[in-house]
Amino acid sequence: MKRRDFLKGCMICGAASSLGISKKAWGSGSFEGYPEGMGVLVDLTRCIGCRSCEAACNKEQQLPEPKVPFDDQSVFEEKRRPTEAAYTVVNRYEQSGGPVYRKVQCNHCNEPACLTSCFVNAYTKTKEGAVVYNSKVCVGCRNCMIACPFNVPGYSYSSATNPVIKKCIFCYDTRLKYGKPPACVEICPQEVLTFGHRNDLIKIGHERIRETPDKYVDHIYGEKEVGGTGWLYLSSVPFDKVGFDNTLGNEPIISNVKEFLGTVPMVLSIWPALFTGFHLLSTRQKGHGDDHGHDAHSKSEQEGAKK
């Protein structure tokens, strides 16, 4: 093989392969969240488990009628998670001081793992702080479900022709966009949910803790967790007792992946030179080693055919 031919081949393939990753670098930059982002402060100490928020969400998002009506308390026997049919669920945790209820929905992370893991970029973090998604491009790899540290996104498995990701969108289309609080917040009779700028909510949270330190655990869940989330929680019992994962750490999920992404340009730039070098070194003494095995036959085949 002539060296020129080799280089040609190398370039064709190199071009093809780098096309995929050259745009990579900018995607992995860190993202701090929008300063004007909105959020919701959830005060678990106030929640009575009435499930009105579930009902309001169901109506607002036009979800299917649930099997068990919203005033039925039997659902608390099990721990539920958000699904395609319910973007938010309330779970009950029996504690020594009585039951504690916890509303689960998308936390609208500052640096959403779902967003960074999606290979068609279906997710968007809007400037209002909502994490929304474009179901028109969702391929259905369900990587975002793997990535979400809070196990939020659901998938409409039941649909054969158009299954997509389904999750809480902070009522973005119908409310948040117009500055209005989401349906679940508005309906809550106990004022468990406080809607506002995330920065203000953090202040409010700390204030509540300072005012009644006996009532609260001195921590706002979501202030720092996985890079900070739009929805924040106050609790009277340790968070891991009521279904929160305390082991997530404060680094956004994408930080784990950066180490690998960092090696990509390195491999791309060093490998071709390295292996071309190997090739030249190892074939120099042997001359052109093309006439072996299968090749030997092909040559004589061509010659034979010409005769």
């Binding site: 995607g27 290979f119 068609v120 970029n121 491009v137 969702c138 259905g140 990587n143 997509v164 690998f260």
Partner: peptide
């Protein structure tokens, strides 16, 4: 979920921060 959309990451919408 929607295999016919497999070419999307190549032609329709890019998510270059994703390992996938």
């Amino acid at each position: 979920g929607q295999p016919w959309r497999l070419p999307y990451p190549m032609v329709v919408s890019f998510g270059p921060a994703a390992v996938l």
